[in-house]
């Protein structure tokens, strides 16, 4: 087994800290705590953790600002854990560089799954030319997609949408971001295009398009590519 991955928890609620420590240690992670934003910054700099779990309601500094400060230099994934559950707050956190967002109360199973996904996604090397997710295989160089070894015919837009999602697998991409990346700046308000294309893509690559497993909807926020 490889070296234990370190997770930094920045949260001032001791009960949440204890719960996270118990669950995450049991899953084989090494845990570091920080009670406030300042300590969090220092701990992140000295330990360079593989992942940060960040609470937004910190006593000394607003979590969103801390997120921006961290993202100046911290390259590893950050997952926000917060009681703030409005779409605006979540989108803001994602725009500020969070890889994922979980609202409290959360299920620990869900948290562990998200942690695994972002850690794995982070280890995918950028110049990999093929991405595989179960039966789905995406060849980024040749612009081909195979499902169970059969070629899936995709339009150019469908392919760029799928490859964008797949390259960021595990990470929530906001509607705005996807629209900007796939269609360009002028289309950021046309969410209906995105919906239609996602529905088309699902019909082509999902086993059961009405219960998607690959392109997962994050309500009011965006999409996440899972497996």
């Amino acid at each position: 087994m490889k070296e234990k991955e370190t997770i930094l928890i920045i949260d001032d609620e001791t009960q949440i800290q204890r719960l996270l420590e118990i669950t995450l240690s049991a899953s084989g992670y090494k845990i570091i705590h920080a009670q406030n934003g300042q300590d969090g910054l220092v701990a992140a700099a000295t330990n360079n953790p593989s992942l940060i779990l960040l609470d937004l309601g910190l006593p000394d500094i607003d979590g969103q600002n801390l997120l921006i400060k961290l993202r100046d230099w911290f390259k590893n994934p950050i997952i926000v854990l917060s009681v703030r559950n409005t779409e605006i707050e979540i989108i803001k956190a994602l725009d500020n560089g969070a890889n994922d967002y979980l609202t409290k109360p959360f299920r620990t199973g869900e948290l562990l799954a998200r942690i695994r996904v972002v850690l794995r996604a982070n280890s995918i090397i950028d110049n990999d030319s093929t991405l595989s997710f179960g039966d789905l295989c995406i060849d980024l160089l040749n612009h081909t997609v195979k499902l169970k070894n059969e070629i899936v015919k995709l339009t150019a837009t469908e392919f760029s949408l799928l490859s964008l999602l797949a390259k960021n697998s595990g990470r929530v991409l906001t509607h705005q971001y996807i629209l900007k990346e796939v269609w360009g700046y002028g289309y950021s308000e046309h969410s209906q295009y995105l919906r239609v294309f996602v529905a088309q893509l699902r019909k082509k690559i999902e086993e059961n398009p009405s219960k998607p497993k690959l392109i997962i909807t994050e309500s009011g926020i965006g999409y996440r590519f899972g497996e």
């Binding site: 529905a199 909807t217 009011g220």
Partner: peptide, 13 residues
């Protein structure tokens, strides 16, 4: 805040 959504997504969620 109104926006376009797929009713499938709503029910699945």
């Amino acid at each position: 805040r109104l926006d376009w959504h797929d009713i499938n997504d709503l029910i699945n969620k």
